[in-house]
């Protein structure tokens, strides 16, 4: 059913991503699909990594660890942005096509009042993605 699953990752909030990682791992096993861990990070030094190359290295390490845990095939990919808060959704949607993903599994929070003003990233990706998007709520 699915061959390539894209899972957006924020290494600064890995614990909060646990449900999505679990679901993505299960689906990948079920269909024998490959998982792509995708991160958007700033080009300036940040909390997780002080250089983009450093971030890439850490994401690869994270992906390997996930691969061992869930026993599926994986790839990782870092997208670098000057303004990640503003460009996150654009870059993720773009990445779907570049990877050729046919499913996106993404962690998101419960709906809240402020969403009308500042919609959640997951919801925005879902409205624009050309493929199925599974939003996993915590």
């Amino acid at each position: 059913m699915y061959h390539r699953i894209m899972v957006p990752i924020d290494l600064a909030h890995v614990d909060a991503l646990e449900p999505a990682l679990q679901v993505a791992g299960d689906i990948a096993r079920l269909y024998g699909a490959k998982i792509w861990y995708v991160s958007v990070t700033a080009n300036t030094p940040g909390p997780v990594a002080r250089t983009p190359a450093d971030y890439e290295k850490k994401l690869t390490a994270f992906a390997m660890q996930q691969g061992v845990e869930h026993g599926q095939q994986f790839e990782s990919r870092v997208l670098i942005s000057h303004d990640p808060v503003a460009d996150l959704e654009d870059l993720l949607v773009q990445s779907i096509a570049e990877i050729g993903a046919d499913l996106v599994v993404m962690q998101t929070h419960l709906p809240r009042k402020l969403d009308a003003l500042l919609p959640a990233h997951g919801g925005k990706v879902a409205t624009r993605a050309p493929v199925s998007v599974l939003l996993v709520r915590s």
């Binding site: 290494l11 890995v14 909060a16 997780v48 002080r50 250089t51 450093d54 290295k57 850490k58 994270f62």
Partner: peptide, 19 residues
Amino acid sequence: ERNNKEAAEEYAPGERLPP
């Protein structure tokens, strides 16, 4: 949420920073 320091440590414990 874990603090950032722990997150950073976990994925590259004590390694030299890539440039």
